[in-house]
Design a protein around this nucleic acid. Structure first.
Lengths: 362, 362
DNA sequence: TGGATTGACCGTAACGGTTCAGAACCAATT
DNA sequence: AATTGGTTCTGAACCGTTACGGTCAATCCA
């Protein structure tokens, strides 16, 4: 018994004595042939074990892959553990599902800078999320002749984008702290560039950050505090490469060790803020009486502990990114979507204690 | 100015006056042509805006898509909200990433039974997770001529599978409860079939459940309790279609209303168990003194509240599924992988109160 | 009854690559 | 001078499908 080559549309047509077109129509345009012939085609297909038109060949011919590519940060686990990223992912998946499009997660090899996977992905467009704006994978995506939507993280001129106004959003929070009386603050932020720098970040590094979101949030803080006379160069900013609660805790520790006079810890994400809260508790600092802690994102866990933060609609963001991409054929669609944010007044922010209070209690 | 047709490998070759083969080699086999020519090819490509070989055309020729398809349950949000599913997804994504393969989430339209997306997906294989075993999408996947791995949820004869021994795993837990003295128990389980049935499930329905995992767990419980003389037909089993904490709470309420004498609530997932705990608290029942509650999965939140449960390695399961699929070319690979589980003795299980205690306190 | 319309089907030409067997050329070896 | 070996490049076949523009016979209408 010889190895039977898998049936194709052509072999099926030959078997039936009809043209390939007819077999194709049997699958794609039932109205183009008589029900009787169609029945015969489908039956013969079953008999020959023909699984239906090959999706790849069809994609080549129709120039449609039926899938959207998603380029994520190097660290995949980050995406699956960070509630904000997860919300985005869910929203995007919902949008794709609604349009009957697949969602193709592009593998990014953390070790080698292997851009090949981007070129290998058979997709009709890309969504790029949480990638530094000098990432070679991003460049590879942009070199592909398909529409691309960037979701607030990589900042690229002229590319469709959905996101929030990070700078303005955190300004509202900062002004709140200022109104409460905080002048001596510290900042805990996520990684600012592709290289690992677990420690203090210079103003320069912050200004040149390759993660737009972090850059914008730090800029917003600088705006607000500079405006009331705080010398921003003296404000300690601690950076962490890994985005985790533990990172937030260790960053808070490092910051408080270096500058115990700080009255408020502004964290650029809720995850980091949760870590800061842990560290405060460990040190016996009461929040908010002894220390104010704020976050950003508005994740569920933040809500649970009553964190003062900025809420952003992460799921909506993902959905908007998907819709924007899938509407690329429409020239009248918006090219940028900026979603609203909301200040969440939790219970982790209060006026700073005076120097007297710090020594003698309230 | 006319619309310039996008450059192709052929047009590039023509422009350079070389063969298509050479251009192809410039991208895929740099050692097959002189560095000088290669440089020229790449430079001309840049000049003409040629983005490199088309991934779909390449896939057609090489018969490799470079991606793995993932078929998930109808409700996508479920996958992104359920920690166990998420762990699986992460593990699978890691395996794919490690092998440089993309992960293609197949869109499943919950409304229409539209199987077309399965046929349209250009993938080298499928992983199927958390799908009823009579789902038409599953049938569509199996009809495709690519390797398939099933991850413990759909039960299909002869198909590669990775999972745990649900029946044996829950038996260990059940025997523990039996040893503690529980005889009057109730069960809260997830959906047993594709139709919605929020309420009590008959023994029949449980035996015929289309979700293998639920069927196996209920069978394990039946094994254990029947063995010590409990009449399984009288044990209340409450089913919920949606898998959420709220569902767990309402199911627990329904069960306790119907049978207040129950001393232990056995839930077939931690999520449901968390809901049961909520409901117990709402009723003023102390756990475990007044009521024993158990779960299944071993998610992080369960650990936090000290839930007595069965831990299964969800991330490892996803990774194993990916590895199994990607090793399909190897005929010596295992066809089935069964991972170990572990009983987690939390603080939500204790001996039942005696009748006296129930009335007069301990 | 002639002309237009409709339904059913077909032939050809892409779609954009990869692959493999060999041709052409040159240098080194026998 | 003939052989060998290596490098560099080419030609043609092939991957499996769908788009496009037909043909042809049957039906409809006035």
């Amino acid at each position: 018994m010889h190895v039977r080559r898998p049936a194709t549309l052509a072999s099926l047509a030959a078997e039936l004595g009809v043209s390939r077109t007819t077999v194709s129509n049997a699958y794609n345009r039932p109205d183009q042939l008589s029900p009787e012939l169609r029945r015969r085609v489908l039956e013969t297909a079953r008999r020959l074990g023909y699984p239906g038109p090959d999706p790849v060949a069809r994609s080549l011919r129709t120039r449609k892959a039926g899938a959207v590519g998603l380029l994520l940060t190097e660290n995949l686990s980050y995406a699956f553990r960070d509630p904000a990223a997860l919300g985005f992912l869910e929203g995007l998946a919902l949008a794709c599902e609604g349009a009957g499009q697949g969602l193709h997660l592009v593998p990014v090899n953390p070790e080698r800078e292997d851009v090949a996977a981007v070129h290998r992905a058979g997709v009709d467009g890309f969504v790029v999320y949480s990638v530094p704006d000098d990432d070679p994978h991003l460049a590879a995506v942009l070199s592909r002749p398909v529409p691309t939507v960037v979701a607030d993280q990589p900042h690229v001129e002229g590319v469709d984008r959905v996101g929030i106004d990070d700078r303005a959003a955190i300004t509202v929070l900062a002004d709140r702290l200022i109104a409460l009386g905080h002048r001596r603050v510290g900042v805990v932020c996520m990684r600012l560039a592709r290289d690992r720098n677990d420690g203090f970040a210079t103003v320069e590094r912050a200004h040149n950050a390759h993660f737009h979101v972090q850059r914008a949030r730090l800029a917003g803080l600088e705006d607000s505090f500079s405006a009331v006379g705080v010398d921003w160069k003296r404000v300690p900013v601690v950076e962490r490469f890994d985005h985790s609660v533990a990172s937030g805790a260790s960053a808070a520790a490092q910051l408080l060790d270096a500058d115990p006079e700080v009255t408020a810890l502004i964290c650029t994400s809720d995850i980091l803020a949760l870590g800061a809260l842990t560290e405060a508790r460990r040190r016996g600092l009461r929040v908010p009486q002894d220390l104010t802690v704020t976050g950003f994102d508005g994740i569920t866990d933040a809500d649970r502990v009553g964190l003062t933060t900025v809420r952003q609609p992460v799921l909506e963001k993902g959905r908007a990114a998907g819709k924007l991409l899938l509407a690329s054929v429409d020239p009248t669609r918006p090219r940028q979507i900026t979603l609203d944010t909301e200040l969440v007044l939790g219970s982790t922010a209060a006026p700073p204690r005076t120097a007297e209070e710090r020594w003698f209690g309230p």
